[in-house]
Design a protein around this nucleic acid. Structure first.
Lengths: 277, 277
DNA sequence: CGCGTCGATACCGGCGCGGTATCGCCGCCC
DNA sequence: GGGCGGCGATACCGCGCCGGTATCGACGCG
């Protein structure tokens, strides 16, 4: 399975073999065996190019999920072992620089519960939380719909908030009481930045590429970009930035999410504390 | 992993080995290897009894999920291969005898979409749909909250309905305009039946054991039980049965559910058709 | 106290995985 | 157009791991 995913991602037997740390011939054979076992061709190969069949792309998607599931199983077991010896607590993943006060309140509320264990907070780059949660490096995460996908997790809604546009403090529009999306998407000289896609590449477009909130606020302060963000970001706004409400931007819901199988005592406690906020 | 799950379920190396079709010594060795690889003891064994450690029960839960994920990957790939040759469509799982009219409308609506493929409907026993969906035998399912767990699936709500109590037509309470839960939970001679748990065993209690709606309606008609069911069951009620609304019973929501990774064209089409109903 | 049960250990054989060597195909470039 | 180079497939070999049988050690029970 690991072999197939590697080949399907590289679309090149040689490179895939290298990545897997094996030689190319065993890899060819393994793929043929897999194809024979499933009774289908998964890869269409000419001697110059390799491409996925329909069945192959299904297996790529499902196989990735399966691999993540076994990794998660191993990791969570290891951590459960540490937890019994008291050497580890529960890992919470959250976006760096988002939902700060909510997070603080949550940690406070949970810490005051009886039987609370230590919570290791993992600050993530954009879109990283889902993977951490899926592959067992994190036990629970704070996600923001509709930006993050909650597919495959159990979730509980925590709060919903409107969005604001963040501008350099001196910008002419910064004194307005509110703006519409149409006003801010095409600001001359202040393009919206581009966030990385799930595969790490950036979409085409005019804006600068950013990876986290620090980069973003810096760019805005420099007058090179603007951004539409959840209201709660105002609490941590530098004083050279200004925020103006954008009523017609989609509302952002912060949810607490956890993998459906792993409702441990610690995760259940965190969720309970979160819903009581 | 399969080996560990077998031992953890049997709590007996000999029986587990038999179930796996191998001898006992290789099984012992495999488990020890797994424990060494994870750096933890998973099973506490005296020479008379085997029991799970904390880490072991985590691995049992997560390992089952992982095994189901790889089974699902294989099955879905095989079916994707068949689908390209036009030999198979999409499989929809639903509870036998529930949501009949909704199902009919859904199938009609989807069939009239352009590019619709054939839908194989799989009528399931209680609680079976989740497993079918998880292990790849089904692509999409109709579930009923709060009875079925939607953990780990993407869902879309279709409709919510109240519940009614189903009684023999001649029963004194059958003429009432409504009843409360308190009125029907302890009816003399008409106990609520017992449904199987996820592991196939039945909880202790007074009522008869039932596995599907046919058994249930037969028992009610015989005057040996009563049941609280969603309103929509009235449409298919035999005329020797009567239904009385129970306003304080929890509302039942019918949802369409699918595995988060597998948003194929066909599944997406069904979901779209469902939400338009 | 001996017997039966159960998991662990010891040892052996065969299959499968991974390695090297080589072939066949085909696009590219001189 | 022909030689070259890159790439996947095939052939063949050796070793490690898995699964088997035989046996041991622990322990509950009559």
């Amino acid at each position: 399975m690991r072999y197939f995913v590697a080949v399907a991602e590289e679309l090149h037997f040689g490179r895939a073999a290298q990545r897997l740390g094996i030689a190319q011939p065993p890899l060819s054979r393994a793929i043929s065996q897999l194809e024979r076992r499933l009774g289908t061709t998964l890869l269409e190969r000419t001697s110059r190019t390799v491409s996925l069949t329909e069945a192959g792309s299904v297996l790529l998607r499902e196989g990735r999920a399966a691999l993540e599931a076994v990794e998660a199983a191993e990791r969570r077991t290891r951590r459960a072992a540490l937890a019994t010896t008291g050497q580890a607590g529960v890992v919470l993943a959250t976006k760096a620089g988002a939902s700060d006060e909510l997070l603080a309140k949550l940690l406070d509320a949970y810490a005051s519960e009886p039987g609370a264990v230590t919570v290791d907070v993992l600050l993530c780059a954009i879109g990283e939380q889902e993977r951490l949660l899926r592959d067992g490096r994190a036990d629970v995460a704070l996600l923001h719909r509709p930006f993050d996908s909650t597919a495959g997790f159990d979730t509980e809604e925590l709060c919903t908030e409107g969005q604001v546009v963040v501008l350099p403090a001196g910008h002419p529009l910064a004194r307005r009481t509110h703006l519409r999306m149409a006003d801010v998407t095409e600001l001359p000289g202040l393009p919206m930045p581009r966030w990385p896609c799930r595969d790490g590449t950036y979409p085409d477009g005019p804006g600068p590429q950013v990876r986290d909130h620090t980069q973003l606020t810096q760019l805005i302060a420099l007058g090179r970009a603007c951004a539409v963000l959840p209201e709660s970001c105002r609490a941590q706004l530098r004083d050279d930035l200004a925020a103006v409400p954008v009523p017609d931007a989609p509302a952002v819901t912060t949810v607490i999410a956890w993998p459906p199988q792993s409702r441990s005592r610690a995760v259940a406690g965190l969720v309970r504390a979160a819903t009581r906020l």
